[in-house]
C-alpha cells in the first residue's frame, strides 16, 4: 500500500501540475477575451522540447536541473494529499521547509554555470524575493506549529479535521490572511513574476535552457505550483479526508490566484520587498502574538 502511494503521489502531482499550467493559460486567455490554447498545450510543449536538441554548459548545468526536479518530486512525498502521505513520519514541517528550498537552489546552481548575466540577475532576484516572502512565511508557519504544538504536518491536518479550518479559527485567522497575501510570491506568479521577467532579463535563470532542460524546468514549475498551493490547503484549509476534495480545494485556490495574476502588472523587486516586509509581515507578527497570548 505504501509503495503504491509512493508511486502514485508524484504521478498525480505531475498530472495536476501540468493541468494547472494548461488551465492557467486557458483562463488567462479568457480573461483577455481570447480563445486561448488547448488545455493540453503545456504537454505538447513538453513533448516538443524533449524531442529538441539542447546545449549544455557543463556538468553542474545539467545536474542542477535534474536535482531541482528530483527534489520537487521528493517534496510531494512529504505533503499529505487527502489521506495519501507516504513519508509523513520523516521530520515534519522543518524538512518540508528545507526541501522546498532545494528546488530553486538547484536551478540557481545550474543557471549560474550558464555564464549569462541574465541568469545571474534572475537568480539574484529569486533569492532576494525568497528572503522577502520567507520572513512572513516563517512567522506564519511558526504560529501554526506553536498553536498546534506539533511539527508534523499530518497532525496539523488531522487536528483541523477534528475541529475547524485554521483559516476560520480565531487564533490563526490573521496568519491565514498573511499567507494569502504572500501566496502569489511563493508561486512566482504576477505581480511577483520578477524572477523570469521575459521582457527584461530574457526569462532569467532559464535563459540558456533549451530542449530537455526546459522541459524538465517546465515540469518543475508545474510541481512548484502544486506544492505551494497544497501547503496552503493543508495548513489553513484543513487538508481533506480524501484526494478528490483536496484537489478541488486546490483548484479553487489556484483559480483565485489566477485572477490576481491576470489583473496585476509586474512589480519591481524593491517594490515587492517593500510590500512583503510591510503588510504581510506585520499581520503575521500580530497573528503570532495572538497565538502566544491564547496559548498562555
Amino acid at each position: 500500500m505504501r509503495i503504491v502511494e509512493v508511486i502514485l503521489a508524484p504521478i498525480l502531482a505531475l498530472l495536476i501540475g501540468m493541468f494547472f499550467l494548461g488551465l492557467a493559460r486557458k483562463i488567462m486567455a479568457r480573461i483577455h477575451w481570447r480563445y486561448g490554447p488547448p488545455i493540453t498545450q503545456p504537454v505538447i510543449d513538453v513533448i516538443r522540447l524533449f524531442s529538441q536538441k539542447s546545449v549544455s554548459h557543463g556538468n553542474m548545468f545539467t545536474l542542477g536541473v535534474l536535482f531541482s526536479l528530483a527534489c520537487s518530486l521528493v517534496l510531494i512525498l512529504f505533503l499529505p494529499m487527502g489521506k495519501i502521505c507516504p513519508l509523513s513520519s520523516s521530520g515534519g514541517m522543518l524538512v518540508i521547509l528545507y526541501v522546498m528550498l532545494l528546488a530553486p537552489f538547484g536551478i540557481a546552481l545550474s543557471g549560474g554555470e550558464a555564464a549569462n548575466p541574465n541568469a545571474s540577475i534572475g537568480i539574484s532576484r529569486k533569492l532576494t524575493l525568497a528572503l522577502g516572502y520567507e520572513v512572513p512565511l516563517l512567522v506564519i508557519l511558526l504560529a501554526v506549529m506553536t498553536h498546534y504544538k506539533t511539527l508534523s504536518i499530518v497532525n496539523i491536518v488531522s487536528m483541523q479535521q477534528n475541529t475547524s479550518w485554521a483559516l476560520t479559527s480565531l487564533p490563526l485567522f490573521l496568519s491565514g490572511i498573511a499567507y494569502i497575501l504572500i501566496l502569489p510570491a511563493i508561486l512566482g506568479i504576477r505581480p511577483f513574476e520578477i524572477t523570469q521577467a521575459a521582457q527584461e532579463i530574457s526569462s532569467g535563470p532559464m535563459v540558456e535552457y533549451g530542449g530537455s532542460f526546459l522541459a524538465l524546468a517546465t515540469i518543475q514549475h508545474g510541481l512548484n505550483l502544486f506544492i505551494g498551493i497544497a501547503l496552503f490547503v493543508n495548513l489553513f484549509l484543513g487538508g481533506a479526508g480524501n484526494p478528490p476534495i483536496f484537489f478541488l480545494k486546490m483548484l479553487v485556490v489556484f483559480v483565485l490566484g489566477l485572477f490576481i495574476n491576470a489583473a496585476l502588472p509586474r512589480l519591481r523587486i524593491e517594490q515587492a520587498m517593500r510590500y512583503l516586509w510591510r503588510w504581510p509581515t506585520l499581520i503575521a507578527f500580530i497573528g503570532m502574538i495572538i497565538v502566544l497570548i491564547i496559548r498562555r
Binding site: A29, P37, I44, V55
Partner: peptide, 18 residues
Amino acid sequence: ARWDAERFGVIPVATPRQ
C-alpha cells in the same frame, strides 16, 4: 487579444535557446 496566436500554439519566447 486581437488575433491571439496562442490558439495555434504560437507564443513569443525571450531567448533563442527556447
